[in-house]
């Protein structure tokens, strides 16, 4: 696995195309994976990936090199995706859609059986609102308070939506398991 060295970041700051291409090669698959998890389809994920890299290369001069560069780019990707969801008003579904199976019990053990590909496909199949909160809370590690601030909703809304998202995900898994 190639590593992002400080030297590589410096070369990118100097707008060296070869270095930028190398950085793109290393980070693009991971960042596109993130974008896919948020938008739910490969077509928009590609657009969001490009938008993310435009921001990364534009703002790379402001990267302080105190933290992880990859972490910094991940945050940019997440923010780009959230902005895209807001811009396209896709988060409205958060307030409108209800999970069809509220009473289902947690099937955490069952979810553990899923491989990466299957899990992400299930996440992608969730409504946009649920998918966003699930990504932010369970995967990115944001608190409900931070999610509330980021999306402009109440902390309690984030919490309840997350519970529903989790159940919706479990339902999708169960549906596939027992056709």
């Amino acid at each position: 696995m190639p590593i992002i060295t400080q030297e590589l970041v410096h070369r990118c700051k100097r707008n060296e195309r070869a270095a930028m291409a190398e950085l793109f090669k290393i980070l693009a698959p991971k960042l596109k994976g993130i974008c896919y998890r948020y938008c739910g389809n490969a077509f928009d994920a590609e657009d969001l990936l490009q938008e993310t890299f435009i921001i990364v290369f534009t703002k790379i001069g402001s990267f302080k090199e105190q933290g992880s560069f990859e972490g910094w780019t991940r945050r940019i990707a997440v923010n780009t995706c959230i902005n895209w969801l807001k811009k396209n008003k896709l988060l409205h579904q958060m307030y409108e859609l209800q999970p069809k199976h509220d009473a289902e019990e947690d099937q955490e053990e069952d979810l553990a059986e899923l491989n990466t590909q299957e899990l992400v496909q299930h996440i992608a199949a969730l409504p946009d609102g649920y998918r966003t909160i699930l990504n932010l809370f369970a995967i990115e590690g944001y608190s409900h308070k931070e999610i509330g601030e980021q999306l402009g909703i109440n902390e309690s809304t984030s919490r309840s939506q997350y519970t529903r998202a989790k159940k919706a995900l479990q339902h999708l898994f169960m549906k596939e398991k027992k056709p």
Partner: peptide, 14 residues
């Protein structure tokens, strides 16, 4: 569970 798997997920760009 899902964090570990989601972090491992990658998609090749065009």
């Amino acid at each position: 569970n899902i964090k570990n798997k989601a972090y491992a997920f990658q998609l090749d760009p065009m």
